[in-house]
Design a protein around this nucleic acid. Structure first.
Length: 135
DNA sequence: GCCAACGTTGGC
DNA sequence: GCCAACGTTGGC
């Protein structure tokens, strides 16, 4: 089982939008590193849903329900998308500020590469962020 | 609105 | 293949 962090601007697509839809294609990713991460995702993997630009915080957990397949919004055939479903909304969002301030998360890929929209999390990082959300 | 980080493009 | 110019992302 692997863990991931995926970013979306909430005014375009928010965690609540995902809850409403029940399941969604995570499309529009146009970055090679992010693509490689999506291709490594397995059904049943868990991902944190992160709101960029507005909120700037992790807000929920989702599950990968379909592995990488051609992105339906891409006409070039070069890009892939996965399908995700909501699993659990965090009791309290975990802000970027809180993650940056926490030494247990200093190795997080997303903190080192802020522009990367899909990044891996270690199991420890994933559990740690969930613990922070329950405080 | 600004700026840093990073990706892409195009001239050579 | 290098590098300058430019575009985009995302935090502040």
């Amino acid at each position: 089982m692997n863990y991931w962090l995926m970013k979306s601007e909430p005014d375009v697509f928010s965690y609540d939008d995902l809850v409403e839809k029940g399941k969604a294609e995570w499309d529009g990713v146009r970055n090679h590193t992010a693509k490689l991460h999506m291709m490594a995702m397995k059904k049943g993997d868990l991902a944190l849903f992160y709101h960029s630009n507005i909120g700037v915080e992790a807000v929920g957990v989702m599950e990968i329900v379909e592995e990488a397949a051609p992105d339906s919004t891409d006409e070039t055939g070069k890009w892939v998308a996965v399908h995700v479903a909501p699993k659990e909304k965090l009791a309290n969002p975990v802000t970027l500020k809180a993650m940056k301030a926490d030494s247990a998360l200093s190795g997080m890929v997303m903190l080192r590469q802020s522009r990367l929209s899909v990044s891996p999390l270690s199991e420890q990082e994933f559990r740690h962020i969930l613990a922070l959300s329950k405080r």
